[in-house]
Design a protein around this nucleic acid. Structure first.
Lengths: 338, 338
DNA sequence: TCATTGTTTGAAAACGATTACAATATATAT
DNA sequence: ATATATATTGTAATCGTTTTCAAACAATGA
C-alpha cells in the first residue's frame, strides 16, 4: 500500500540504512548509489512517513497556536503571522480555540502534549487561575504575560505606553473632558491601558475624574451602554478612549445616534486596530498593535528556544504600540496650522 | 525522561501488553490489575505517546483545514465551525493558509501527506489547474466544488439561488435599474451568482442590460471603481448587487461619497454576510452563507467517510443561502404596507 | 605484496505503542 | 481427581524510520 524505505531498498538492491542515508543527504553514500536511490524513490512515489521519523527523532516539526477565538477580529492576523513564520521555518501549526474557557485550554494542552508538538504559543484564556501551566513539559511562549508565572517567555505590547499615547493624542487634539471606557476590570491589559490614560492626564495637569472612568466588558454593547449612561446622567464627555476597538465601535455607534458631531465635538480613540477600524465607513482612530508581527515573532522566538541546546533564559519581548490617526479624532497637525 | 508504558509495567509488576490493554480499556484484564495499573500510571504522570500509537494504528486523529487566507473575513467562521466539530469528535486541526497560491497549496498537501493526517478539508486556491488533486491519497472534502474533479465530496452553497434571491429582493423593493458588480470573471461562484441575477430579471420580465454587468475583482476598491465608472458615464443604477460583501462595501463607500441616499434612492446588497456587514455603522443587506455550518458539516462529513469501511460514494452537500435584510435596501414589507 | 587508511555499506537496535498468539491460572462439570 | 472451558497474562512481532557499530571494499604508501 504505502511505499516504505524497505521497498525502495529492495528495488534498488541496497540495505534500507543506505536508503535512509541517501534520502536525508547524509554523507558517506557513493554519489552513484545515491542517485539510483533517489530515482527509484521518485519513481515509486515515495512519501516519507513523518510519524515514524518523529518517533525516533523525538520531534514532530509541529507547533500549536492556542488562542481564545479565531472569530474575534483580533486573532486572525496573529494566526497568519504565526503560520507564515512557521511554514517558512518548516513547521506546521495546530489551531486551537479555547473559547475563553480554561477547561478547554487545559484539555487542548493535554492533547498537544500527547501529540508531542515541539512547542506551543498560547494566549491564555484568563490571566488568573492558570495553575495548570506550572509543571508543563513543552516549550511554550505566551502572548500576553500572566502575572506571577515567570517561567515562560512572552511577547507583549506596552499597554501603558499605548494608553498614554492614546490619551495624549486626545489632549493634544484639544479635547477637554476625556473619558476612559474600559473592558473587564480584572484584565491586566485593561488595567495597564487605564494606567497610561491616567499618566497622560497627570502629565498635562488634568485632574483625574473617577466618574469618567468606566469598567465594562470587551464588547461593543458595553461601549454603547457606558457612553449612554454618561450622556443620560448629564455627564457627557467630549472624547473617549475605548479599552479596545470593539468598545470604541460601540461608543461610536452611541455617539452617532445621539447626533454628536465626530470628530468636531466628540473624539473617539480605540485600541488594537482591528480590521473593522479602517473601513471607509468607520475610520476609527486607534492604537495599533502589531498583530501580524506578534504572531511571527512568537514563532521565531519559540523556534529559537527549540534549537537552543541549553535551557535558554526567559525572554520578554515588548512590542511598541503605534498611533493611527483616522477620522474619529481631530487631526492634531491641522489644529496646529490655525 | 518520558514515562512509557514499560515504566508502568515494571512498577506495577506486569507485562507491558497488560498495561496497554488496561490503559485502553480493552477487555480481558482483571479489574484489580486494571485499577492498579491506572493508579500507577496516574502517579507516574503518564502521557500516552500519540506518535507511537499513530505508527501502529495508522491514523493520527489529525485533520487539516487548507484555506486561502484566515485574514479574509470569510474564513474565520468556517475555521471555527470546523474546529469545534473536530474537537468534539476527537480530532485536532492543522491550519494551512495557501495565500491563494497553488504552489503553496501543493506544498502543504505534500507535508500533510507526510504527516499522515487522516483527512483534509480544502478550499482550493483556484478552480482551475488543480491537477495535483487527481492522484491524491488522503480523504479530502472540498469547500467549493471544482468543476471537472468529480472524485471528491464537497460542501457548497447554492450560488445561483443566492444570486436569484438577492436580485429578487432588489426588484421587490422597487428598484428599477439594477446592476451586477461582480468579482473575478473566471470564478465559478461569481458566474453562478450572476446567473441567478439574470434569472431573476428574466422572471420579472426586466430586460438584461449588459452595460450594467461589470466584472472586477473581489476587492473593495473594485466595487468602488466599478460604481464610479457607471456614475461618471451617466449610467447610474438605482441598485447594485455586489458579487460579495467586500465589493458591496466598496460600492457603498462610493455611493455615500456621491451623496446617494441609501436605501431611499439607492439600494445595495452583498453576498456572504461577513462580520463587517452587520456593524451598526454599515448594516449591509446581504445573502448569508452559513459559514460556521460549512466548516462544521465539512468536518462531520469527512469523519463519516473516515469511519466508513468501504469506499463511500461522492457526496455533494448543498447549503441554502439566506436573505439578510438590513439597512442598505428598502424593506419590502414596509413598502407593501403603503 | 601487505599493512594502513578512508569510503561505502549492512545488520541490528531503538523509538513507544498495539495485538496475535501462546501460555498460564482459575473455574466448572463430570 | 480429572478433563474442559474460560479468564487473565506474557512473549514477540510489527509499524517505518534513524543511527551506531562493525564489516566489506577500495585506495594509498612502503
Amino acid at each position: 500500500m504505502q511505499v516504505t524505505i524497505k521497498d525502495i531498498a529492495k528495488k534498488a538492491g541496497v540495505s534500507y540504512a543506505t536508503v535512509s542515508r541517501a534520502l536525508n543527504g547524509r554523507s558517506g553514500v557513493k554519489e552513484e548509489t545515491k542517485e539510483l536511490i533517489l530515482e527509484v524513490a521518485k519513481k515509486m512515489g515515495y512519501q516519507p512517513n513523518a510519524i515514524a521519523r518523529g518517533l525516533v527523532l523525538k520531534h514532530t516539526h509541529t507547533l500549536a497556536l492556542v488562542i481564545p477565538d479565531i472569530t474575534n477580529p483580533f486573532f486572525p492576523e496573529i494566526a497568519r503571522g504565526a503560520e507564515d513564520a512557521a511554514s517558512l521555518l518548516g513547521y506546521s501549526i495546530f489551531l486551537c480555540n479555547t473559547n475563553w474557557d480554561t477547561d478547554k485550554e487545559k484539555l487542548y494542552l493535554k492533547t498537544l502534549q500527547e501529540k508531542r508538538v515541539d512547542g506551543i504559543i498560547l494566549h491564555p484564556a484568563h490571566n488568573d487561575g492558570e495553575t495548570h501551566l506550572y509543571d508543563f513539559q513543552i516549550p511554550m511562549i505566551l502572548l500576553n504575560k500572566i502575572p506571577g508565572i515567570a517561567e515562560y517567555s512572552s511577547i507583549e505590547i506596552d499597554n501603558v505606553r499605548g494608553g498614554f499615547i492614546a490619551t495624549k493624542h486626545l489632549i493634544e487634539a484639544g479635547y477637554k473632558k476625556i473619558a476612559f471606557i474600559g473592558g473587564t476590570e480584572s484584565s491586566p491589559s485593561n488595567a495597564e491601558r487605564k494606567e497610561g490614560y491616567k499618566l497622560a492626564l497627570k502629565k498635562y495637569n488634568i485632574p483625574i475624574d473617577e466618574s469618567l472612568i468606566i469598567n465594562g466588558k470587551f464588547k461593543s454593547e458595553s461601549g454603547y451602554e457606558s457612553l449612554k449612561k454618561l450622556i443620560d446622567s448629564g455627564n457627557t464627555p467630549d472624547a473617549v478612549f475605548g479599552g479596545n476597538d470593539v468598545i470604541a465601535l460601540g461608543v461610536l455607534h452611541c455617539a452617532q445616534e445621539h447626533g454628536l458631531r465626530i470628530p468636531e465635538d466628540f473624539g473617539i480613540i480605540g485600541f488594537d486596530d482591528i480590521p473593522y477600524a479602517s473601513l471607509p465607513q468607520i475610520q476609527l482612530t486607534t492604537i495599533e498593535q502589531p498583530k501580524y508581527q506578534m504572531g511571527k515573532r512568537a514563532i521565531e522566538l519559540l523556534v529559537r528556544v527549540l534549537k537552543a541546546e541549553e535551557d535558554s533564559e526567559v525572554i520578554r519581548m515588548i512590542l511598541e504600540p503605534k498611533l493611527k490617526i483616522r477620522k474619529t479624532t481631530r487631526n492634531v497637525s491641522r489644529k496646529l496650522d490655525k
